[in-house]
Amino acid sequence: MPVLTYVEAIRQGIWEEMERDPSVFVIGEDVAEYGGAFKVTDGMLERFGRDRVIDTPISESAIVGAATGAALMGMRPVVEMQFMDFIACGFDQIVNMAAKIHYRWGAKVPMVIRGPSGAGVHGGPYHSQSNEMWFVHTPGLKVVIPSTAYDAKGLIKASIRDENPVIFYEHKFLYRRIKDEVPDEDYLVPLGRAAVRREGADIAVITYGAMVWTALEAAAELEKEGVSLEVVDLRSLLPYDEAAVLASVRKCGKVILLHEDTRTGGMAGELAALIGERAFDDLDGPIIRVTAPDTPVPFAPPLEEYFLPNAQKLMAAARKLAAY
């Protein structure tokens, strides 16, 4: 089976959807000749032409709004945000227009807004954010964050075929750092379904995105100390897989909620509430969050390292919880 990087898998997924459905098109800044800032759309202009690979002005509101208008006509736009930080410039069109159209009057908005998020590459405050919770708090959107190349392809394809606006977060740290076996045939990874990345017995670590790899690294280390972590990759944050979260918590009795996003109002808080409401009797210890602090993402490597959760921080929390 071919081995692809995360970025190649996303490209292949979009490419296959454009081959099978002429209503799929790509729109964004520098996506045509340049192939996108991270080369996700590299080669698409030559294959699919200018009508389907559309370079835009730096106008995020108009890009999202135009994509929404086209989606209302039955097209399936795939919008690239050059960095997910810039999505703030298109916020109104996402949360007030695209997200609410089906509820307001029943029309479908099949659209994907995708782009790179996340830290670890010294991008500083405007090129490193994990701002997924802006959209998780917006009914009508779906929010997807793949952690593997296999999932990246299957999830982007499923997102393009979904009848709703999907915000698709790609972790830029993973683009060229991870590789998977990725079938070069058609397959989908369903939205809203988590995956257990590692079976364990003592502590459930619920996470997503690049932190899945951090959790797996910590799990491998802690196994040597006799602490067994189960690692659950949410893959979708809205809607999210409540059953998978609860099953893992019930199995292990202890839980750590891990994410790269900042602490207050993060996904961990939502999961803690779910677990408190629905699995309280199954808990053998406090619900623990391991997250970034409530600050912007700093640039200087020592600052950024302090900001980001890592395997050492997770292991420290896990050791303490295991001893509880």
């Binding site: 929404t68 209302l72 006509m73 097209m75 227009m97």
Partner: peptide, 22 residues
């Protein structure tokens, strides 16, 4: 109707883009 002031302008552009593509 779109009751966010200005919200309909890019939608109109997108609708027109689809008219032309189709």
């Amino acid at each position: 109707a779109i009751a966010i002031v200005g919200g309909g302008l890019p939608l109109a552009a997108g609708y027109a883009l689809a008219f032309r593509y189709l």
